[in-house]
Amino acid sequence: MLLELKDITKSFAKDDSWFFKRYQDVLKGVSLSLNKGECIGIVGESGSGKSTLGKVILGLETQDSGSVTFSNEISQLPRHKAVSVVFQDYNTSVNPRLNIAQIIAEPLINEGLEKSQLKAQISKLLIEVGLEDSMRARYPHQLSGGQLQRVCIARAIAANPRFILLDEAVSSLDVSIQVQILDLLLELKQSRNIAYLFITHDIAVASYLCDRLMFFKDGKIVEQVNDIAALPLVTNEYTKNLLNAASYLEIPFDINDVDK
């Protein structure tokens, strides 16, 4: 076990009045456990509270009740070394005034890496995420979306975390680029034995990457699919609706598939 959440609740103040406050419950008792090297997909629509859950795990928000427990192996580490994150919006998650090498260097410097080793380590990370070493001097605005998301992934794996939170990490990319990034994530999962918590609204993307799926609605996990092969057997009304809507993913007529 790498991470365990028990009964997490969180509410936000709706509007501040002088005399009373009204609260909106965003998370209503969420429990889950993530094993080493595993990938769990949290699938839900916008506004269901899935990103808030991510923030609670990262320590960017504090839960009202419940507990976030990391395994012994990583609980002694500061949170930023145990957990890393890749956000949806790659443009706003990097500093536009730093070049690519500086962006990736930040967690490494935090780790206390010597300056002499820094350059080699950055090259290694760039190559690991499928970028060329010559990119290091460029600035974020000179890169395409897919390339920039690769930089964010390189930064996320720089401190060698056991666990990465992916908050809609491929949602702003084109379908053709999504596949490339997902393949990269699968590769890294294998080679580095990293666990992922993959937050997404896209069921196809989730089933491409994840071992287990949890369907999230109104701040609760409404259904859990432990084996992806059992996906068609879901019982919850919302989950069924979601899978039905995904039929739009298919192309309504036969097309010649070269692979077949």
Binding site: V175, S176, V179, S207, Y208, A229, A246, I251
Partner: peptide
Amino acid sequence: TRLKLINRFKHV
């Protein structure tokens, strides 16, 4: 690429 992305889902 589109087919690749949906294949696992479709298969399941």
